[in-house]
Amino acid sequence: MQRWSSAPDPATDTGWRDTPARKGFFTDSSICIGCKACEVACKEWNGIPEDGLEMLGMSYDNTGALGASTWRHVAFIEQPRRPTGGGGFTPLPMVAATSDQNSPASAAETGIRWLMSSDVCKHCTHAACLDVCPTGSLMRTEFGTVVVQDDICNGCGYCIPACPFGVIDRRDGPAGARNVGIAQKCTLCYDRLGEGMTPACAQACPTKSILYGDLEELRITAQHRVEELHTAGVADARLYLADPNDGIGGAGAFFLLLDDPEVYGLPPDPVVTTRDLPAMWRTAAIAGAILLAGAAAAFVRARP
């Protein structure tokens, strides 16, 4: 019985032969300018409906979170300047705010840094959504990405609580929109990849904060970038989900962040839930056996 996928190349592990190199995204938040072009380009290409017209008051983020009708989400975080040294951060030249030298005593705290980062489906090596999907609608592509087959999904919703990142969701509306009632998430532009094209978000990103390419190469690029930032004194720079030994086996879409993942709404130590599934099945088997034995015992003294 196949437990959770464990091979380093998830496409081959799934049964694909002669696969192209595993594809992915490296999102470098240190050069994200928060323009949201990725959100718009994604919606244009994939024909995703508008996802609510509510002002959220979360800095300039009125998108809020990834969901069935939001496959890229740019987070905006405004942080008051903390004292440097110790747990403080080093401002990047391009994101540092200047404080007024003539301001009163509190002026040291008036500067802020404005963090932006474009979130997306992680296309996990060990993908819980794919593991738990009962219809086989969620599938591993030859590029190692994870895609919902719209014509198969019956909207059971199991993938939604299974995802450790809260990415996938069931489209509830608007009425008449495409794919209402079924699970939806980033496809890493499967239809573009097949044509040798770059996914829409990466294509639209004006600063190359979103890089698309072969995952192995992206990991090397990312390692160089984080070292470059450390050399430049940006001690807060760190890679997130780039490690193949983490709880999801590393992500197909990973990130360079300037603060803890939870600051951006990301889980600090995600683990694919199906890692514990064999143990859970054993527990269930024992529980079932106890029920059977208990029921039998209940009839031991029964008189006809």
């Binding site: 196949q2 738990v132 219809t135 009632g181 199906t274």
Partner: peptide, 26 residues
């Protein structure tokens, strides 16, 4: 009734996946 697309409930029987408790349950 809980399905997003109740008419497609038979798609549950396309496959049998030990990694999916819902598939096993089906």
């Amino acid at each position: 009734h809980d399905l997003g697309r109740p008419a497609r409930f038979l798609n549950m029987l396309r496959t049998a996946k030990p990694t999916s408790p819902m598939s096993m349950g089906t």
